[in-house]
């Protein structure tokens, strides 16, 4: 350890010029991984699917990161930051996989730009090109809100990743196998806090129920199949979330029952002319989130350390 990290500037001096200001990690997070598109799969569809799963993780991660230094206590602050980091890691691999499957999805940048494809996807796409569900993007509320959002999100994501482990796509299968271990912790954290707030004080329960009421209409999108999901599921590459519905409902009901909370009788939030987040039809909240997330990268598209 002594000589390895003699100076924090060591790695910056004369280092390789492909490091750009926003990505000092591996130039290619999938270096050495087989990214051949499986037989019989449309690369454009595979890329769209990876963007859906990757954008869900990226936008959730960004919202969770906003909690940094704002949680009720240090342990929960660290927990939320850890969950955000796990999801950011999943997003990075999934966006890199999307770019490898179909380079056409990556926004064009000036020639010689050091920005790696997954960063270009995160920082240089317009809001309408994001494929995340709207549940991930709506603005943060109080602590009850983040607990409910993470519960609804991770109940569905864990069930999906468990199935995705057998995907014919090697990258998706590997990302899923790793993600299952991570999201299991996220779901438990959210489930326990849901129970705690539901059975805590009158005020904690009131706030939790208000958050559930507000977020529940957004949940349907996560467990409703999009044509791309259906198509890739039939090719043995993706997962049709509609098939997970029963399992996901059972887990959610387990948390609700333990908490003495009824499932809200609220209809799913309608799309814009049948189009939802998966089609790029988002709420205003995503545009505002992206404005903050992307502003530095867009101001310095060729920024280097």
């Amino acid at each position: 350890m002594s000589d390895d990290h003699g100076s924090i500037f060591d790695g910056l001096l004369g280092g390789d010029s492909s490091q750009w200001a926003f990505g000092t990690d591996f130039e290619d997070p999938l270096a050495g991984v087989d990214t051949t598109t499986p037989d019989g799969v449309d690369p454009a569809e595979l890329a769209a699917y990876c963007l859906m799963l990757g954008d869900d993780a990226l936008i959730m991660s960004q919202r969770l990161s906003e909690w940094c230094s704002r949680a009720p206590d240090l342990e929960e602050d660290i927990a939320l930051a850890n969950v955000a980091l796990d999801l950011l890691g999943q997003a990075r691999l999934l966006l890199a996989r999307a770019a490898a499957a179909d380079p056409g999805v990556v926004p064009a940048l000036p020639a010689g730009s050091p920005v790696p494809p997954e960063d270009a996807l995160a920082f240089f796409r317009e809001d309408r090109d994001f494929r995340n569900v709207r549940l991930a993007e709506v603005a943060n509320g109080d602590f009850g809100h983040v607990v409910v959002r993470l519960l609804l999100f991770s109940v569905a994501r864990l069930a999906l990743l468990e199935r995705l482990r057998t995907s014919r796509d090697h990258v998706l299968a590997a990302v899923a196998a790793k993600g299952v271990k991570e999201v299991a912790y996220h779901r438990d954290w959210a489930g326990r806090w849901f129970l705690t707030l539901a059975r805590g004080t009158e005020e904690s329960r009131r706030r939790l129920l208000a958050a559930l009421d507000a977020l529940f209409p957004l949940w349907a999108e996560l467990v409703t199949a999009h044509p791309v999901e259906r198509s890739l599921a039939s090719a043995g590459v993706g997962v049709d979330p509609a098939f997970l519905r029963e399992e996901v409902d059972a887990v959610l009901d387990q948390v609700l029952a333990a908490s003495g909370v009824e499932r809200p009788a609220r209809p799913p939030l309608a799309g814009a002319g049948e189009r939802t987040g998966r089609d790029g039809a988002h709420t205003e909240a995503l545009s505002l989130l992206l404005a903050e997330m992307q502003v530095v990268a867009r101001a310095h598209p060729s920024g280097r350390w």
């Binding site: 390895d4 990290h5 790695g11 000092t24 990690d25 591996f26 050495g32 980091l85 796990d86 999801l87 950011l88 890691g89 999943q90 990075r92 691999l93 990302v175 790793k178 993600g179 991570e182």
Partner: peptide, 18 residues
């Protein structure tokens, strides 16, 4: 060849450089 402990492990680049 190295494998991350967690998907978002921020130490991967340092491991590589070391």
């Amino acid at each position: 060849s190295i494998t991350p402990t967690y998907s978002g492990c921020p130490a991967m680049a340092t491991m590589r450089d070391d």
